[in-house]
C-alpha cells in the first residue's frame, strides 16, 4: 500500500526527512539518499503529469483572475500563488541554511555555492565596489525569479479552482506569468539601478556618462572632437529611450517566457488524449532549464545596466572575497 504512493510521498519525504546519517568525517552522500533525490524529482514530474492541466487545451489567460477582494484590494490567483511561493522561498532557504556554521551542513553548502557563484559572476560585471551594494537585490532577483519560475511546474498550478459560469477559474497562477509581477520586478530593478547610479556617480556623473563625449581629446583634432559632442548627445538621447524601454524589455521577456512555457505545456497535453501522460516530460525539463536561464538573464541584465555606468574597470574583481 505504501509502495503505491511512494511517487507522491517521496518528494514530501525528500523535503521533510531528517538528514542522512553519514560516518563521522565522511562527506559523501549515501547511495540511497541519491536514489531518493532522483526518485523524488521524477515523482514530482509524474505527479505533475497526473494531476495538472485538467483543462488542457484551454488557452491560458494572459491576465490573472480576480478571485475576490479585501477592503477594495483585488486578490488575484497570481497574487495568492506569489505569497505561497514567497513563504516557501523563505522557509526553504531558512531550512537549508538554519544557523550557518563554519563547518557547513549539506543545505548550507548548497546555499553557499549559489550565493558565492552568483557573487563571483556579478562582481566583474558591476565592479567590486558596487557589488557589495547591489548584491543583496541581485541575489534576491535570482532566487525569487528562479523559484517563481519553477513553481509553475508544481502540481495544482492552473488545475485547482472552481467553475464560474462555465469558465474554470484556477486558484494558483505562476507569479511570472502575471505581468504585474514581472513589471514590479522591472520597476524595482530600475529603481535600484537609479539609486546605485546616483549614489556612486551622482547626477552630474550619470549625465556625463550618458551624454558626455567619450573620445580621447589628445588623439583627435578639435573640429572632430567638437563634432563628436553632437554625436554623443544624440547617442545619449537614444540611450535614454533604451533605458526607459528596459522596463518593458525586462518585464515582457520574463513574462513572455514563463507564460509561453505554460501555454506550451498546456497545448502539448491537449494534442491528443494520450499525450498528457509522457509527451510533456521533455518540456518540463525544458521549462526547468528556461526557469534558470530567465532568472540568470534578468539578474545579469540588471547587473549589466548597473555596471555599464558604475563599473569603471579600475578595480580588479577578486574572486572568493565575500564581504558583508
Amino acid at each position: 500500500m505504501q509502495n503505491r504512493f511512494r511517487f507522491f510521498t517521496a518528494p514530501v519525504k525528500l523535503v521533510f526527512r531528517s538528514r542522512p546519517q553519514t560516518k563521522k568525517g565522511c562527506r559523501h552522500r549515501s547511495t540511497s539518499y541519491n536514489d531518493n533525490v532522483a526518485k523524488g524529482f521524477l515523482s514530482v514530474l509524474v505527479f505533475c503529469l497526473c494531476v495538472t492541466n485538467a483543462h488542457a487545451g484551454v488557452a491560458v489567460s494572459p491576465k490573472p483572475y480576480v478571485l475576490g477582494s479585501v477592503a477594495g484590494f483585488p486578490i488575484t490567483n497570481g497574487m495568492i500563488y506569489t505569497w505561497v511561493i514567497s513563504l516557501a522561498i523563505i522557509l526553504i532557504v531558512r531550512a537549508l541554511i538554519r544557523k550557518p556554521r563554519l563547518i557547513p551542513t549539506k543545505g548550507q553548502t548548497v546555499a553557499e555555492t549559489v550565493i558565492e557563484g552568483i557573487y563571483n559572476l556579478l562582481t566583474p560585471i558591476v565592479g567590486k565596489r558596487v557589488a557589495k551594494q547591489a548584491f543583496p537585490i541581485l541575489i534576491g532577483f535570482f532566487v525569487y525569479i528562479l523559484m517563481q519560475n519553477w513553481s509553475g511546474l508544481l502540481p495544482g498550478v492552473g488545475t485547482i479552482g472552481t467553475f464560474k459560469e462555465g469558465h474554470f477559474t484556477y486558484f494558483f497562477r505562476p507569479s511570472n506569468a502575471d505581468l504585474n509581477a514581472t513589471l514590479a520586478l522591472a520597476i524595482v530593478s530600475m529603481a535600484v539601478w537609479a539609486w546605485l547610479v546616483l549614489k556612486n556617480e551622482g547626477f552630474v556623473g550619470a549625465v556625463k556618462h550618458i551624454f558626455g563625449n567619450k573620445a580621447d581629446r589628445s588623439e583627435l583634432s578639435f573640429g572632430i572632437y567638437a563634432l563628436l559632442f553632437f554625436v554623443f548627445l544624440s547617442v545619449g538621447f537614444i540611450e535614454c529611450i533604451s533605458i526607459l524601454f528596459r522596463l518593458v524589455s525586462l518585464s515582457f521577456r520574463l513574462y513572455g517566457n514563463v507564460f509561453g512555457g505554460e501555454n506550451l505545456i498546456n497545448n502539448i497535453m491537449a494534442l491528443a488524449p494520450w499525450t498528457k501522460y509522457l509527451l510533456p516530460v521533455p518540456f518540463y525539463f525544458l521549462e526547468i532549464l528556461i526557469g534558470v536561464v530567465q532568472a540568470l538573464v534578468f539578474t545579469l541584465l540588471v547587473a549589466v545596466y548597473i555596471g555599464s555606468i558604475c563599473n569603471h574597470g579600475e578595480e580588479e574583481a577578486t574572486e572568493g572575497t565575500l564581504k558583508v
Partner: peptide, 25 residues
C-alpha cells in the same frame, strides 16, 4: 502589492539567509 511582496522577500532573504551565510563564509 507585487513590489512590496518582492521587496519583503528579498529583505527577509538577505537578512536571514544571505547575510549570515556571507558572514560565515
Amino acid at each position: 502589492a507585487q513590489i512590496v511582496n518582492f521587496c519583503l522577500v528579498t529583505y527577509l532573504l538577505y537578512r536571514f539567509a544571505v547575510k549570515p551565510t556571507l558572514k560565515t563564509v
